[in-house]
């Protein structure tokens, strides 16, 4: 029984501790949703494999606070993302913008797929053409005579 109580208290303590990390109040559910999407799509500059929502580093906390502040000011998602990109570079975006340096990143896979299809189509067409002209593999009149004479001589 004692253990159970201890476990309960410990468990409660944990949930409280978790909730205390960030306590921002939002006017509406839509606002909360925007905050969630933004913090999940922006990358923490310090701990690079985490987004701002997940990271516990001081800079991520600052950025969460900053995003919350801008949401409260009524700024649009684009404005908030631009604000952070102006300071930390395109790096903070998990969804990189389309520009000359990211062209390969965005269209490379699709390009490779198209090239692959092209190769398959060319191969198929060639194979079909080969099959449609079996006479290519048969001997001409002169060759047949020569073959006959060679076989004749062998006997």
């Amino acid at each position: 029984m004692k253990r159970l109580i201890a476990a309960l208290v410990f468990g409660l303590g944990l949930t409280v501790a978790h909730a205390a990390i960030d306590t921002y109040e939002f006017d509406s559910e839509a606002e909360r949703e925007r905050y969630r999407t933004l913090t999940e799509e922006l990358r923490c500059p310090k701990c690079q494999n985490q987004n701002i929502a997940d990271s516990n580093s001081p800079i991520a906390m600052d950025l969460r606070r900053e995003i919350y502040r801008m949401l409260e000011e009524g700024r649009s998602n684009d404005e908030i993302v631009d604000y952070l990109v102006a300071r930390y570079g395109d790096f903070v975006r998990y969804r990189p913008p389309l520009n000359s340096t990211t062209l390969l990143l965005w269209y490379g896979p699709a390009g490779l797929l198209v090239i692959g299809f092209g190769v398959v189509v060319v191969m198929l067409v060639r194979r079909r053409r080969g099959a449609a002209r079996p006479e290519n593999h048969s001997l001409s009149e002169a060759e047949r005579e020569r073959l006959a004479s060679l076989l004749e001589n062998r006997k």
């Binding site: 310090k46 300071r87 930390y88 570079g89």
Partner: peptide, 12 residues
């Protein structure tokens, strides 16, 4: 408050 740091893109 780290506001200038934020404007400078300081992350550490």
């Amino acid at each position: 408050d780290g506001n200038l740091g934020l404007d400078l893109g300081v992350y550490g």
